[in-house]
């Protein structure tokens, strides 16, 4: 079941999982590095970046700086956290990093989760509601005393029973079906036969072709199938281009065939992660997670309208932010 679901989502061919894997790896790499640094640099004072010192001394420091120059921060470091603290802090950092890696894997960049949740909810809800209703009925002393001996079964069990025709579903079963069971059976069957019908199409496989990236010369990359991707996402290519440039901190142009030429060297998986972020921010509906949305501009504000549930959310305009000056000084002056 879970495997099946992982396929359902925004998928870029086979490389979907690669990225997450990589993320974790790099994270571990950095933390490991930090750890060793911490151990080596134990004896040195400033390596203990004590947060308390940090916060408290913030404002006073500015004043001190004028008097003592650079002496102040060192003293802070010396005084407060020496070796045991440093070690502890580094460890907690590592744990945090691991958490982060996990969270990133599941959360932001992996829309599978987004799709997964609503589905389970739709399937499990009926039983819960029903039980509650039943209980309430019993409390109120109304008739209707169908005993409910079996606790709500797990999804897998029910599916297995359904498939094998055992349990309640056996030929010679005499006990009457419960509504919740029948409802579950209905959803399971519906999902098997017509996955697009169950749950407003939010389970529909949403696939975008992986970005085709080629290198042009030494310093430029070509993003070949941008028009195709834009069409699939129903977005203006201009908007996507703007986003890509802002994220990558670079610029480029569109060539005659509609391909995007980006300045700088970029690999497919890098652009993939950028596109993923674009999808999360500007494509998926905030309420039902459906990618079937339209982007509208109304008096300088961008809105994402969902075509399925009709919800509407405002999204921030794309900002380039700070751009560091690169390249030769001479060129800038000229």
């Amino acid at each position: 079941m879970s495997e099946e679901e992982q396929k359902k989502s925004v998928a870029f061919g086979e490389t979907t999982d690669l990225e997450n894997g990589e993320k974790v790896e790099t994270n571990e790499g950095t933390t490991a590095e930090g750890h060793s640094v911490a151990e080596n640099g134990d004896a040195e004072a400033p390596a203990t970046f004590d947060p308390s010192a940090m916060k408290k001394k913030k404002k006073p420091k500015k004043e001190k700086e004028t008097e003592n120059g650079e002496e102040a921060p060192k003293e802070n470091g010396d005084g407060e956290g020496f070796d045991p603290k440093a070690l502890k802090k580094k460890k907690s950092k590592k744990a945090k990093a691991d958490d982060e890696a996990g969270a990133e894997g599941d959360g932001e960049f992996d829309p599978t989760k987004l799709v997964k949740k609503p589905k389970k909810a739709t399937k499990k809800k009926p039983s819960g509601d029903d039980d509650e209703f039943q209980k309430r009925l019993e409390e109120l002393g109304l008739e209707d005393k169908k005993d409910e001996p079996a606790a709500p079964q797990t999804q897998e069990e029910i599916e297995a029973e359904l498939a094998q025709g055992t349990g309640v579903w056996a030929q010679d079963n005499a006990t009457p079906f419960k509504y919740s069971q029948l409802l579950k059976r209905f959803y399971i069957n519906l999902y098997e036969d017509h996955p697009e019908l169950s749950g407003d199409g939010r389970l529909k496989n949403y696939k975008i072709p992986p970005p085709q990236v080629a290198r042009e010369g030494n310093k430029k990359s070509i993003f070949a199938n941008l028009p195709e991707i834009a069409r699939k996402m129903k977005r203006n290519p201009e908007h996507i281009i703007q986003f890509i440039f802002a994220e990558l901190g670079t610029n480029g142009s569109v060539d005659g065939a509609g391909r995007l030429v980006i300045k700088g060297r970029f690999q497919q998986k890098q652009l993939e992660s950028v596109l993923r972020r674009y999808i999360v921010e500007y494509l998926t509906c905030g309420t039902c997670k459906s990618p079937n949305t339209t982007l509208m501009k109304e008096n300088r504000l961008f809105f994402v309208n969902c075509n399925i549930c009709g919800s509407r959310k405002s999204v921030s305009a794309i900002k380039t932010g700070f751009q560091a000056a690169l390249g030769k000084r001479k060129k800038q002056q000229a």
């Binding site: 950095t30 916060k55 950092k93 990093a97 994220e247 970029f266 998986k269």
Partner: peptide, 24 residues
Amino acid sequence: RQKISELMVSSMGIKKSNIKIHGF
């Protein structure tokens, strides 16, 4: 990017949700 964001979260009391990491 990862290092500085970790640093900010762990020792500067900045929430992770307030940090946006851009780029590939």
